[in-house]
Nucleic acid binder design. Sequence first.
DNA 1: CTTGATTGCGCAATTA
DNA 2: ATAATTGCGCAATCAA
Lengths: 194, 194
Amino acid sequence: MSDSRASSVIQEWAGSYPGQNHTLNQTSASNQLSQMDMMPYGQAQGLGRGGPDDRVSEQMMGLSYLPYMSSCLSNTSNAGNTNHHQSHVNTQQDFSSFLMPTLRAPVNKRSLSKDSAEYRLRRERNNVAVRKSRDKARRRIMLTQQRAGQLQEENQRLQSRIGQLTQELDSLKHILSQRHLQGADGGPAGEASI
Amino acid sequence: MSDSRASSVIQEWAGSYPGQNHTLNQTSASNQLSQMDMMPYGQAQGLGRGGPDDRVSEQMMGLSYLPYMSSCLSNTSNAGNTNHHQSHVNTQQDFSSFLMPTLRAPVNKRSLSKDSAEYRLRRERNNVAVRKSRDKARRRIMLTQQRAGQLQEENQRLQSRIGQLTQELDSLKHILSQRHLQGADGGPAGEASI
DNA sequence: CTTGATTGCGCAATTA
DNA sequence: ATAATTGCGCAATCAA
């Protein structure tokens, strides 16, 4: 495992896709949480593949994490979303559904034909956003680790310095006390000491 | 139905045979910070084995959240979907399978019927492993952040302490110099007060 | 409602 | 062969 500490080797990836700009926002290793932002960005639009595809559709089983072994093959046919919401404390009657148009069924989702261009466009955009977001997260994590490392180093230096100062201080105190004794021993003058 | 773009199931097997091992010298970003196991969040690594058949890197380090290429959408509908663009460097990999019994063709994948129990079992196991791994990663990240925070706090305390000690030290030095002067001046009586 | 950002999840390729 | 990692796409949800 060679590790490269290089604090500036996070960008070599010169993209290579059809007309797209790469917003390399790279905050150099600085203190504190660097708030990267990034913004506009050319939007993707490289869809239009040749053949229909996407057999997407089977992903609804999110479930328990903790019990890694508990009942493995329990393909709960849902729960993936775990909408533990909406079923709060139904203090009211059952007409809540009428009061909450927000929860109305798959109304607007109709145009979700996996074949529609709309769909692909949205998917592609989201994919871009996801990659971007994860990249950001990765960078953030690395920065944090780096920061922790630097802080630890600095901490040691500071500890060292403290030890040094303390020792020096003790020496001086000792010297002073000696003088104090000498002074008291042979002189009438009273001195204050710390 | 799942899918994802993906992949090559057989093709890289063929590609990585000829003796072209991936010399991916992945750099892990670990170093000091040995408190906890470090994750390999290495970056860089931008090399690229100049092989012409880098179909694999297609998803290696997906740097750049760009539209990606549209071509990565292929659905491995099920068994028998070996139709992959593997028309690359077919220089001569015919007998490779004979030369490398260890890596022989999709033998393992033989029962890759998405319907096979074997498949599901493996998938499920991997899913469990994935959840576990991610959970671990999340925990690790939080710990690192926490550690960074604590270190920063401690850092401040140490800085403070150093300032305090330094000041104290200066006082004593001053006192000593005073006594020195006074003592040399003629009177043994020197007073110090802080 | 629409869009980009996040987040949890499963898949598949790699790595150990 | 198995478990652990890791990049990626999907879909739900958040936040504007």
